[in-house]
Write a protein that binds this DNA or RNA. Structure first.
Lengths: 188, 188
DNA sequence: ACACTCATGTAAGCTGTTACATGATTAA
DNA sequence: TTAATCATGTAACAGCTTACATGAGTGT
C-alpha cells in the first residue's frame, strides 16, 4: 500500500497547513474553486477529517457553541506537516487529473517557492507531451477533429500560461539541466 | 433512479453508434484522447459492454478467431440509439466535469449539427459563469492567486475557442434569444 | 529469454456521491 | 411559514482502478 494518491486527504491537510479551519470553512473554500477542483460533499469531507485525527495528522479544538452546534477547529500536527511535505515532494503522475496540478498550485504556493517552480516545470513537460500526442492524433484524423482541436487549444493556452509564470519566477538554482525535449512547437 | 449521469456507458454507446467496435478497439480509441477524457480500464470497460448487451442497447457479433481469442464486435441497437439520443439531448449539468463536454463534442459531432451548436452555446454560458465567479474570487483574494489566475487563463482560452467555433458554424435557426448574460469581459 | 501487443475477462478495493438525519438561526 | 445559511454527521451505493488471470503471436 505505502499510501498512494488519495487526493482529497492531502488537499485538506494542505488547507489546514495554511490555517486551522472547521469542516464548514473547508467547504466554503472549495465552493469558490468548484470548477477547477470540485467541492467535496459532507459524505467525504467529514470522514476524512475523522481519519486525519485518528492518524494524528491533525488535532481538533472544539469551541462549544453557545446554543449552537460546536465548531470543531482542526489544526495540522507536525506529523501532518511531514506527511504533506512527502506528498508534495513527489511529482504528479503523468495521468493525474488536472485537479492534482491545481492542488499543488494551491498548496505549494505559500509553502515553498522552489517546490512550486519544480511543479510548474513538471507540468509544462506533461502538457507539452500531451500536446504532441494530440497533434499526432489530429494528423491521423478520425471522426473527432473538433474534440482534438479543443484539446489543442486548451493545451496551447496552458503552455503559454506556464511559460509566463515561469518567466516571472525569481529563477533560483536550475536543479537539473540534462533533458531538452522540445518535441513540440509552441505557437508564438 | 431513472438512470442518471453514468458517463462511460454513454460514451461507449456513442462510439458504437459511429461504427461497430470490439472492446479492444474502444480501448485504443480512448488511448489517443487519454488526456482529455481518460482511458477506461478493462475493469470498467468489459462489464459495461456486458451490461449494454443485457439491456439490449447493443448486440455482439463474434468472429471466432482462428487460433486466437475470438473478437467480439459490438453494434448499437435501435433501443441503444434512442437511449443515446435521450442522453445527448439533455444539457450537461453545470457541475459536470470537463470530460462530459468533450464527450458531447465527440458524439454530437457527426450525429446532429444543430445539437452540437446547442451544446457549444450551453458550454459557453457555463464557462462564462465560471469565469465570472473566479473573477469574484480573485477580487476577494485569499492565499490562492496563482490557482485563480490559472483558472482564469484556461477559462478565457476556452471562451475564445468556443466563440471561434460558434462563429464558423452554419448558424441555423437561433432557437432562443431571450437571455443575454454578458456579465463577463472577454479580453480582445 | 524477455517483453510487448493483441484480446478477453474477474475480484477486491478505494474514492467519492446521493440522500438522508439533526437542529439552531436568520432572511423573504 | 417557507426557505436558506450555519454546522455536523451517517448509510448505501455508484463508478472506477488496481491487480490479477489467461493465452497466443511478435519482436529484440
Amino acid at each position: 500500500m505505502i499510501a498512494g494518491t488519495v487526493s482529497l486527504r492531502y488537499l485538506i491537510l494542505g488547507l489546514l497547513a495554511q490555517r486551522p479551519m472547521s469542516g464548514y470553512d473547508i467547504k466554503r473554500f472549495f465552493k469558490g474553486l468548484a470548477w477547477l477542483i470540485g467541492s467535496p460533499s459532507s459524505g467525504s469531507l467529514y470522514p476524512i477529517l475523522r481519519a486525519l485525527l485518528q492518524q494524528e495528522l491533525a488535532t481538533v479544538h472544539v469551541i462549544p457553541g453557545v446554543d449552537r452546534p460546536p465548531r470543531k477547529i482542526y489544526s495540522i500536527t507536525d506529523a501532518g506537516s511531514q506527511a504533506l511535505q512527502v506528498w508534495l515532494d513527489q511529482p504528479a503522475a503523468a495521468n493525474a487529473p488536472l485537479k492534482a496540478f491545481v492542488m499543488r498550485l494551491l498548496l505549494a504556493d505559500g509553502l515553498a517557492p522552489a517546490l512550486l517552480a519544480a511543479h510548474l516545470r513538471q507540468r509544462r513537460k506533461q502538457v507539452a507531451a500531451h500536446l504532441a500526442s494530440l497533434q499526432g492524433t489530429a494528423a491521423a484524423g478520425g471522426g473527432q477533429q473538433l474534440a482534438v482541436d479543443y484539446g489543442l487549444a486548451l493545451a496551447t493556452a496552458e503552455l503559454v500560461w506556464l511559460d509566463g509564470v515561469l518567466g516571472e519566477l525569481p529563477e533560483q538554482s536550475p536543479p537539473e539541466r540534462e533533458e531538452r525535449i522540445d518535441g513540440v512547437t509552441v505557437p508564438g
